[in-house]
């Protein structure tokens, strides 16, 4: 089907959402809680766009592009006054929540906000509650973290806000996907720590480079159906070994 985004005609398939179509066509729409690896969620409200349709008799609506299904003939505007107002409002609020986040500062600046017009949160952290960490953790099959509480009290944590349970495999996916770097972890010689839990480290059998935690390698071996022996060496050592093997069989 055919739709118009910012006066450009673009093609979309049924079942797609506006945001992916726009991104595919190089049309930029800001989003904080969106990641192609997980289901769209609609929490950050930054990807608001204004839509209308020739059949709608002039009616226009503000919708989140990440969740709005494409429709033939839809006319989408990504930078109207209304869109700008809502996005600026959302960023102003987020800046009050996380004044220290450079990601939010930069985005806010793009919308003309240098400093929040609201009261900054007391003792702010970097978490914008975009939920990406929770959704990715569920996606990899661990579901070790969740949101706790609701409203302004809401936070992301492990059960009972104590130490990660056995569900956590220490893969760091949550920390890696976090857009603001709000999830703390550390790695020393023998130990990786995330969500207050210490994980042993598995090292490459050859070069001793860190390749993961025992739980992580076990988990990914199980979920991929590959033998655990696939997960024993780093890519560089494997690569060198394979080259030598090729030479042996080709000469």
């Amino acid at each position: 089907m055919q739709l118009t985004i910012d006066k450009r005609s673009v093609v979309a398939r049924k079942g797609e959402y506006l945001l992916e179509v726009a991104q595919r066509n190089g049309i930029e729409i800001p989003a904080l809680c969106h990641h192609p690896a997980v289901e769209p969620w609609g929490g950050c409200r930054l990807c608001m766009v204004e839509i209308t349709h020739p059949d709608w008799k002039g009616w226009t609506g503000l919708v989140t592009a990440c969740l709005y299904p494409v429709q033939d003939g839809l006319i989408v505007s990504t930078d109207t006054k209304k869109v700008h107002q809502v996005r600026a409002g959302v960023l102003d609020l987020l800046l009050a929540r996380c004044p220290g986040s450079s990601l939010i500062q930069n985005l806010a600046r793009q919308y003309g906000i240098e400093e929040t017009s609201f009261t900054p949160r007391k003792a702010p952290d970097l978490c914008i509650l975009c939920g990406l960490c929770i959704r990715i953790c569920e996606k990899i099959g661990a579901s070790a973290i969740s949101s706790i509480g609701r409203g302004v009290e809401k936070l992301v944590s492990v059960p009972y806000e104590t130490v990660a349970t056995a569900a956590c495999v220490g893969c760091l996916s949550c920390a890696n996907i976090c857009p603001t770097g709000a999830i703390a972890f550390s790695e020393s010689e023998h130990c990786r720590t995330i969500w207050s839990r210490n994980f042993e480290l598995v090292r490459c059998e050859e070069c001793k480079a860190v390749i993961g935690t025992p739980e992580q390698l076990e988990h990914f071996a199980r979920r991929s159906g590959l033998d655990r022996s696939y997960f024993t060496k780093c890519d560089s050592c494997r690569n060198r070994e394979a080259a030598a093997r090729f030479v042996r069989v080709t000469f």
Partner: peptide, 14 residues
């Protein structure tokens, strides 16, 4: 407020 979306959660706080 459930706290899922920014305008409701942060907006009500402000």
């Amino acid at each position: 407020s459930c706290g899922k979306c920014v305008p409701c959660r942060e907006g009500l706080r402000q």
